[in-house]
Design a binder for these strands. Structure first.
Lengths: 125, 125
DNA sequence: CTAAAACCTGACGCCAACGTCAGAGGCAAG
DNA sequence: CTTGCCTCTGACGTTGGCGTCAGGTTTTAG
């Protein structure tokens, strides 16, 4: 009579999360400290995570790469955790989007600049 | 008998460079310290620059924005100062170009990710 | 001549995302 | 049991491009 044996999700420890996401253990602890990635604790005090912690960490990495701070990410976490946002959060999302786009434009300009130099120095041995 | 009054280029002081390039005076001093922007000195010790210092500073800003360090820039300065490069420098140019391109790709991915969230939260009020 | 504005040289501060070290406990295998 | 790896909590160190303050000289405007 196994009445809905609620899919007892196997919990993983910090090392597995770190290896899975390709970051350091230290980084994962840091994310918890910043409120990005809360963890359960085993009786002995070890951190326990669900498997989706790995994809969450990957996502954080992507946002960090985009120049978002951990504070900004925590402020925006409800957006894709609950899928629901208020006006203020939607505004923040747009602001960050524009920041990223501006950064892309900067980088493309810099890349084009370097390409010029490369073209010159290649024809000018 | 002004025999070839060699186009006495008007030298400018640090404040003018800073205002012209839209950076702080401190930043310009820092560039000198890093070997990016050498300066002559007046008898009293004040830094004197040629006008093209302004465009050089703008260029540095662009490279900084692209993620190059001042050290990297100093190593690559000969490329567009003399227009001549050795194999090692050409290799460095390409490495930096690829770094920038990789960064652009990252940012575009992050932007697309945010766009997804924005689309969802907008249709999901 | 004088006061304001600009410049000088140190030298410490800052921020963000970790790295790294120390010292101590936890856990599976043989 | 013990060996070896994993984990824990602090807490200080790192990196880069400056900001900022202190205390003094120089240049410029009136």
């Amino acid at each position: 009579m196994t009445v809905a044996v609620d899919a007892a999700e196997r919990l993983i420890r910090i090392g597995e999360v770190a290896r899975g996401a390709g970051v350091s253990v230290r980084a994962v602890r840091y994310y918890e400290q910043q409120g990005l990635l809360p963890a359960e604790r085993s009786p002995s005090g070890q951190r326990l995570y669900r498997q989706d912690a790995i994809s969450r960490v990957r996502f954080f990495q992507q946002m960090f790469a985009a120049g978002l701070t951990s504070r900004r990410i925590t402020e925006l976490l409800p957006c894709w955790d609950s899928g629901h946002t208020d006006a203020e959060q939607r505004a923040m999302l747009r602001v960050e989007r524009e920041r990223i786009q501006a950064r892309i434009d900067e980088l493309q300009a810099a890349r084009d600049r370097l390409d010029e130099v490369i073209a010159i120095t290649d024809t000018h041995p």
